[in-house]
């Protein structure tokens, strides 16, 4: 009989995330994947700068903390030294899609055989709710107090769409954890992204649309609704590239 318990690859440390934040769910999915693939002893994770800066405390495997945006470069270094290790980065939208865009794009272009878990919540959480590269047009944040004006502040980056054009990318998939069905899909995607690495297929990125109730100023339930009504239409879920798959 299946029992609900903490994945072995998740440490017994209470997560610091705000109630209603999706980081916790994604952490769990990553840890379950590591357990199920039996790779805890060979996995090395790279933590970002952002709300997930303490991710190194939560995964029961070797971890390195990276400077803001540099996780794919750090992961590249780790992976090149021990190619049989499974190396993943866990990054937010500011880290991956603003300050670390170059590292992300070039790790993808090199087909670096790593797994990238990308949390997109359309806002900077760590510094208290500023505009992110993924902030939606019109969205109010601390640094877009009149709503993101695309005339002056430009358009959001659609990372999966962008990276899907690169030959080095094995898998680019966008998911969400807003309901049970999507959580199941996300789990499958994350597992595939790790399996790809074991099979030496190249760069895999799973973008997970996530909520930030605290900085959005919404209750956790309202935040899920906001994500469904605003983020998913702008960032459609699905597989953008699967080198060896159906698409």
């Amino acid at each position: 009989m299946a029992t609900f318990k903490r994945p072995h690859s998740l440490t017994d440390i209470t997560l610091h995330y705000c109630p209603g934040c999706n980081h916790g769910i994604v952490h769990r999915l990553v840890a379950e994947t590591i357990d199920e693939l039996g790779i805890e002893g060979t996995t090395v994770g790279v933590a970002p700068v952002g709300c997930a800066v303490f991710a190194y405390n939560y995964f029961e495997c070797d971890m390195q903390e990276a400077a803001h945006g540099r996780a794919p470069a750090v992961a590249t270094g780790i992976k090149r030294v021990n190619p049989d290790n499974v190396v993943f980065t866990y990054q937010g939208d500011g880290d991956l899609a603003a300050i670390g865009t170059a590292e992300t794009v070039h790790a993808a272009a090199r087909g670096e055989n790593i797994t990238v878990i990308f949390i997109n919540n359309a806002i900077y959480g760590m510094t208290g709710g500023q505009m992110a590269p993924t902030t939606l047009p019109g969205q109010v944040t601390q640094t877009s107090p009149y709503g993101r004006d695309v005339q002056t502040q430009g358009y959001p980056l659609k990372i999966c769409e962008m990276l899907s054009t690169l030959d080095g990318v094995a898998l680019a998939e966008r998911c969400a954890v807003n309901n049970i069905k999507n959580i199941t899909e996300t789990k499958k995607a994350i597992k595939k992204a790790f399996q790809n690495q074991i099979d030496k297929k190249g760069f895999s990125i799973i973008e997970v649309l996530s909520t930030c109730p605290t900085n959005w100023g919404l209750s956790p339930v309202e935040a899920l609704k906001w994500l469904e009504e605003n983020m998913i239409p702008y960032y459609p879920l699905g597989v953008y590239k699967d080198k060896d798959g159906d698409k």
């Binding site: 610091h16 995330y17 705000c18 109630p19 934040c21 709300c51 800066v53 303490f54 959480g125 760590m126 510094t127 208290g128 709710g129 601390q142 107090p145 605290t214 900085n215």
Partner: peptide, 29 residues
């Protein structure tokens, strides 16, 4: 460390405290 993450205990203010004060950050932000 500057991470604005809120503990679940905030809910206890509404659930179990007789009287409580919320001190919030400056401005609308």
């Amino acid at each position: 460390v500057d991470i604005p993450s809120l503990p679940p205990d905030v809910y206890s203010v509404f659930a179990s405290c007789e009287s409580a004060i919320l001190d919030v950050g400056g401005d609308e932000d």
